[in-house]
Computed example of a mutant assay.
Amino acid sequence: MTETAEARIRIDAAPDTVWHAVTDPATIAEYLYGTQVETDWRQGSPIVYRGEWEGKPYEDKGVILEITPPTRLVTSYYSPLSGKPDEPASYQNVTYALAPDGDGTAVTITQDGCADAAEAERMSTNWSTTLEGMRTVVEGDAR
């Protein structure tokens, strides 16, 4: 049995503005530790994340499983840094869900397939930090 990580935040911006932050490579790099994202944002297309983590270069990958602007993005995700083999069982699904919340947007990120509660907690913390960065970038741009 696997666990699911989850993080939530409210961003003071319209869903279209937050969606741009989720899908624009330049904006993603601002809040996701300089990560460079490559994809055409179409269902079934590959998505690649390149960068450096703790001094080590990485190239993570996945596939766009579902994309419904401006409310939902689901990708598969695999990182060689996980130490797991590059096979279907090693991939996790990451879901970005955006919903109007008054004059802002509620954002929830989930990542399934965590090996145990400790990994789910670690990933939830990482996603919370990422969402805080996203909020800073989006709300800073909105001012």
Rank of each mutant, 00 (worst) to 15 (best):
E52I: 02
S76L: 07
G133Q: 12
D116R: 02
V107Y: 07
N93F: 13
I9N: 07
T23I: 15
A21L: 10
E132H: 10
G62H: 08
T110R: 09
E52H: 03
H20S: 09
D112T: 01
T108M: 02
Y58F: 15
R135C: 11
D101F: 08
E6Q: 14
E59A: 14
V48Y: 00
I28M: 04
M1N: 10
P46W: 01
D24F: 10
V138G: 09
V22S: 01
V74K: 02
C114L: 03
T68D: 10
L65M: 14
I67S: 05
W19D: 01
A99W: 04
D86H: 14
S79L: 12
G140A: 13
Y96E: 14
V138D: 03
M123H: 07
E121D: 00
E6M: 07
I9R: 11
W53A: 04
D86Q: 12
W41A: 01
T17G: 07
P88C: 06
Y33G: 10
T136E: 15
P85V: 08
T23K: 00
G44Y: 03
D40E: 14
L131Y: 08
Y33M: 09
H20G: 08
T95V: 13
V138R: 12
V63M: 12
T125W: 04
A97P: 04
L98N: 00
V74F: 07
E59Q: 12
A13I: 12
G44K: 02
G102D: 08
E3G: 01
T4H: 06
T129C: 11
A26R: 07
T23Y: 03
Y49E: 12
R143Q: 13
T68A: 06
E38M: 10
A97I: 09
A97N: 06
R10Y: 02
A117K: 08
D141I: 07
G102W: 05
G34F: 11
V37I: 12
Y78P: 10
R122Q: 11
R8L: 14
G104S: 09
V22R: 00
Y91S: 13
E54L: 11
Q92G: 01
Y77M: 11
Y91D: 05
G133E: 12
L98G: 01
G34Q: 08
N93K: 13
N126Q: 15
T27Y: 11
Y96M: 13
D12E: 13
W41V: 04
T71E: 10
T68C: 00
I109N: 06
T136K: 15
R143L: 08
E38Y: 11
S79M: 10
W41G: 01
E54K: 14
Q111K: 05
R122V: 00
A5I: 02
N126S: 13
V63D: 07
G55V: 05
E132Y: 08
K61R: 15
G83Y: 12
T71P: 00
E139R: 06
Y49V: 00
Y33I: 03
V48C: 00
T17K: 13
L98P: 02
G34C: 06
T23A: 04
L98M: 02
I28N: 10
T39Y: 11
G44A: 01
P57N: 08
D86V: 04
I64C: 09
S79P: 04
R122D: 12
E119I: 01
T4K: 04
E59I: 05
P57F: 12
A120E: 01
T71I: 03
S124M: 03
T75C: 10
T129P: 04
Q92D: 04
T110D: 09
